[in-house]
Structure formats: C-alpha cells, structure tokens
C-alpha cells in the first residue's frame, strides 16, 4: 500500500498521542489512585432498602478516627440526608480533614450523586450501591446535584454537604427526654435528657434546655458509642409564667455547632395546672397537645432509628 511519507509521520504521531493518553490515564489510575466506581458492592433489593444494614441506617457514621461512612438514599427528588434546602432532610455534615466514603442507592429510578465542582460524581442505579471515597481538607460547603434526568421534578433534586472544623463536629443526638406531663405552676421540676454519642471517642457535650424564656446549659461526658444523661432542675417559680396554660421546652445538644441536626434537638410541652382550670378545658388542651406532640414524637423516633 502506498502511504505518503507525511502521512506516515502523521500516523506515527497519532499513535504516540493515543498511547500517551492511555499512559496518563493509567498513571492517574495507579499513581494517583483514582479508582472507578465499580461492582464491589452486592446488589440490593430497591423495594427493601430499610432492611439493608447501611440503608436502614442513613446518615454519617464514624468508622475510624478520621474516617466516616455516609449512607445516602437518592430518590425522586431528594437526597436523604442531603436535601436540606426546603427542610426536607438534614444536610450531610462531615468534619474537616476526614476521609469519607459515600454509599448511595436508589429505590426508584436512575439518579446521580454529584458534588458540584469536584470529582465526587457517580451514577446511582436502583439495585446497585455506588461507593466513592474522598478526602475533605477544607471547611466549606459543597452543593450536591442529581445530574441524571429522573423525572419531572429532576431540576429540584439538590443537596448540601457541609464540611465543618473538626472541633465543631460531633455525632451527638438527643435520644430521649424524660419530662413531666404536667406540673403545678410554681413547683420545682426535673427534666432528664439522654444524649447518644455515635462517635468512636468519648466527647463532652453541651446540652441546652430552653424552657419558658429561660435557658440552662450543662456539660456532660458521653462515652464512645454510648449514652449519658443530663439532668436539669427547674424551679418554675423563677420563670415568668404570667397566665400561661403550658410551658414549652426544647433540649438541644451542641446548639451552636453547625453539625447539629434535626435529631440534635427535642421539644415538648408541660401543662401547667392552676386551681381555676376546669376538667373539660384540660381535656381539650390535652388533645390539642397530643396532636402537637405526635409529629414531634414521630420525628424523634425516626431520628433515633438513624
């Protein structure tokens, strides 16, 4: 075959270019350790995610001193956790300087989980679990988008990853608060909060009680992967009760931390009994309170599951 000499030069240059490309990619893959999302995870039944050890327990989990697993469910049209813009779910909060492995799956259609402007980017296919490991050295926020069309609400599917300074990061949650249902105004009462620490090390938690218009802080040490109780004694005669029928309270752990999530806080109401109260009014109040409490209780129980 007759090949012009210039064409031969071009052909050789083209081959060198191709081999060069393959070499640089191999270098990136080997020396820089950029691995591909792959088939290392077992398949999962998309209709039974909650039975899975990871997806029955969504959120951030510590696996080693600076290593975390984040379990995310990407569904039409949110990330759980992640989609915090409309308050649907908590943002994903991780500490600075950590190595984070994301586990993402979908119960419905194909999505993606993509941290904008980074190379954390993976398809999320129902029946498969996508994993990606990344290091977060900078305290900042990253937007998360779904970049695969997933239905008519696709454009609203977004989330947030917050990387916070290490000392502001914690894995505390308020597991339970033991508070009286009703007290007599002017009486002294006690509230006991159970604080869970999911971290792998003992940490001190500042627990805050807001009741009426007063605020009380107390510090409590919580062992690794354990619980501790914080008790508040409140003398209601110190509170400005005016003619209130009830008393709202909120217990928050690490209230000032950017890492405090929905389950870092629990609220409730204590009925105030006064002599003038008649029975009927009380019942009505109770019913109304129950309705108010129910959604809270639900939140708490989901929070505890997580």
């Amino acid at each position: 075959m007759n090949i012009h000499s210039y064409e031969k030069v071009w052909l050789i240059a083209a081959m060198l270019l191709i081999v060069g490309f393959i070499a640089t990619i191999t270098y990136g893959s080997v020396a820089l350790g950029i691995t591909m999302v792959d088939d290392s995870e077992e398949t999962i039944d998309p209709n039974a995610l909650e039975e899975h050890e990871r997806f029955g327990d969504l959120g951030v989990h510590q696996t080693d001193s600076d290593e975390y697993d984040v379990h995310v469910r990407a569904y039409q049209f949110n990330f759980e956790p992640g989609s915090s813009a409309l308050g649907t779910h908590d943002p994903i909060v991780i500490p600075q300087g950590s190595e984070v492995t994301f586990y993402v799956t979908s119960p419905d259609v194909i999505h993606s989980f993509s941290l904008v402007g980074t190379n954390v980017n993976t398809m999320v296919v129902p029946g498969e679990i996508s994993t990606m490991t990344a290091e977060f050295d900078e305290a900042r926020e990253y937007g998360v988008v779904c970049n695969e069309y997933c239905g008519s609400g696709h454009h609203g599917m977004e989330g947030l990853v917050k990387v916070v300074p290490e000392d502001e990061f914690h894995l505390f949650s308020v597991a339970d608060v033991d508070a009286p249902e009703s007290i007599e105004a002017g009486e002294e009462t006690e509230l006991t909060a159970t604080i869970d620490n999911d971290a792998l090390q003992t940490e001190a938690a500042t627990v805050t009680l807001e009741i009426g218009d007063e605020q009380f802080d107390t510090d409590v040490e919580v062992d690794a992967e354990a619980s501790a109780e914080a008790t508040f004694t409140v003398d209601t005669s110190d509170l400005d009760l005016e003619d209130a029928d009830d008393l709202d309270w909120t217990v928050t752990v690490e209230a000032d931390s950017p890492a405090t999530l929905e389950d870092g806080s629990t609220s409730g109401t204590i009925d105030l009994e006064t002599d003038e109260d008649d029975e009927e009014a009380d019942d009505e109040d109770d019913e109304a309170d129950d309705e108010d409490d129910d959604p809270n209780d639900d939140d708490e129980s989901t929070g505890d599951d997580e």
């Binding site: 813009a85 993509s114 904008v116 402007g117 980074t118 926020e141 990253y142 937007g143 988008v145 779904c146 970049n147 695969e148 069309y149 696709h154 454009h155 609203g156 977004e158 947030l160």
Partner: peptide, 18 residues
C-alpha cells in the same frame, strides 16, 4: 467544568457555581 448539570430545566440551586 463548573459542575452545571445537563438535562435540567432549572439549573438554579441554593448554592452558587464557582
């Protein structure tokens, strides 16, 4: 390169593209 996704009706999010 900024991370704007394709195939979306409203590429406007709560976070900015840098």
């Amino acid at each position: 390169l900024l991370g704007m996704p394709r195939r979306t009706a409203e590429p406007e999010y709560d976070f900015p593209f840098e």
